[in-house]
Computed example of a mutant assay.
Amino acid sequence: MVKTIWLYSVRAYLNLAMFFYFKRIEVNGAHLIPKEKPVLFLCNHHNALLDPLIIAIKNKRFLYFLTRAAVFKSPLIAKILGTLQMVPVFRIRDGWANLNNNSAIFKACSKLLKEKEAVVIFPEGNHCLNRTVRPLSKGFTRIVFETLEQFPKTDLQLIPTGINYEHAEKFPDSASLFFGNPIPAKDFVLKDKNKSVILLKNKIQSEMSKLATHIPSENYTEILVKLNELQVDFLNPVSVNKTISSNFKVVESVEKKKNQFIKSFFYVVLIVLLIVPYAIWKLMVQPKVTEIEFLSTFRFTVANTLVPIWVLALFFMLATIFGWPIALAYFIGVLGTTLVVVKS
């Protein structure tokens, strides 16, 4: 009961945080997700922590996430992540010796799936801002087939998932989330296990590439430049992929935003209203972010920890010194300015 209340509370807070961070988050295919069957979500990975957070808040089921083990180094952080149903998984970069720990992790995932839970895996094995679905690792196939071997009656459903960003490293941004049709895992159980693995990987790779923008690695930069010139809608991967496959003969463009002066003005006003957390972000946190894929994650974290503390502290300080009307005016001003900057 306590765990359920905690998870609902975290989801509610994250929903509010995402509302003020993203201009919009479009969700497609949520109705396809089975409600009472074991589900394994298989998603592309662009934007570090924001990817699983978006999947979590736009899903009616509570999910378990396989998360890179490096973030579990601190015992306190490991405990917090555990309460959020995040499970560590080790990669080669974590050391060959640690890879043996994955056996226990995969068994735990199989038990979760047997109990009709939902698990999320990013089978590319790492994150990258490139608009490409990268080759998939075999880890997810191991979980699939070990689950079916240990618990053959499990009706495991695989959900290919695609996440897309307009400008993943910028603020504010927009995102789209696409859930594909459920794929029964049993359909890939063959006598030849190696053939089963290859068929499953190819199938999931193909389906994920339909749900996320997939620019071939060959001539990637040239194609990306052309797509940007054509002002395609990167939140609509079906349209963008059609543009690429047609050699730019089929194009659906989006109108370029005009008159950004007002938004720029309110952006400056917002900086002034949030000067302390903004300064901490710009001077102390952002310079230490070495991987661009983590830029939005750290910005989002600062925005939803330091900003609320600063706003509430200043609110009560203004109320004490100048009275409640002034404090309330400040609070409304912050909310209103934020909405203009993020939603316009």
Rank of each mutant, 00 (worst) to 15 (best):
N47G: 08
N47V: 05
N47S: 09
A48L: 07
A48N: 13
A48S: 14
L50G: 07
L50M: 14
L50D: 14
D51G: 07
P52E: 10
P52N: 08
P52F: 09
P52W: 07
A56K: 06
I57D: 06
I57M: 08
K58S: 09
K58Q: 14
N59K: 06
F62K: 07
F62R: 08
Y64M: 01
F65E: 00
F65C: 00
L66T: 11
T67A: 09
A69W: 00
A69M: 02
V71R: 01
V71N: 03
S74M: 05
S74A: 08
P75D: 08
P75Q: 07
P75L: 09
P75N: 09
L76D: 04
I77K: 11
I77N: 04
I77Q: 06
K79S: 05
K79D: 03
I80D: 01
L81M: 13
L81S: 01
G82E: 03
G82F: 04
T83A: 03
T83P: 00
L84N: 09
L84P: 06
Q85L: 08
Q85C: 11
M86I: 04
M86A: 10
V87I: 15
P88T: 04
V89H: 00
F90T: 00
F90V: 00
F90E: 00
I92K: 14
R93G: 05
R93T: 10
D94V: 01
D94L: 01
G95N: 06
G95V: 02
A97K: 15
N98Y: 01
L99D: 10
N100E: 14
S103P: 04
S103Y: 15
S103E: 14
S103A: 13
A104H: 15
I105N: 08
I105G: 12
K107V: 09
C109I: 15
C109W: 00
S110M: 10
K111S: 13
L112W: 15
L113R: 00
K114E: 15
K114T: 12
E115A: 15
K116R: 15
K116M: 08
E117R: 11
A118N: 10
A118C: 11
V119N: 03
V120L: 03
V120M: 03
P123Q: 10
E124W: 00
E124F: 00
G125A: 06
H127C: 11
L129S: 13
T132C: 11
T132V: 14
V133N: 12
V133M: 10
V133I: 14
R134L: 12
P135F: 12
L136H: 05
S137V: 05
K138R: 12
G139Y: 05
G139K: 04
G139C: 07
R142N: 09
R142P: 02
I143V: 15
F145L: 04
E146K: 11
E146T: 09
E149V: 12
E149Y: 13
Q150N: 15
Q150L: 15
F151H: 15
K153I: 10
T154G: 11
T154H: 13
Q157F: 12
L158R: 08
P160F: 01
G162Y: 05
N164T: 03
N164W: 05
N164M: 07
Y165Q: 01
E166V: 02
A168F: 03
K170G: 01
P172R: 10
D173P: 07
S174K: 13
A175P: 06
A175F: 09
S176N: 12
L177N: 06
F179K: 04
N181E: 12
P182H: 06
I183G: 05
P184R: 04
A185E: 05
K186V: 08
K186H: 11
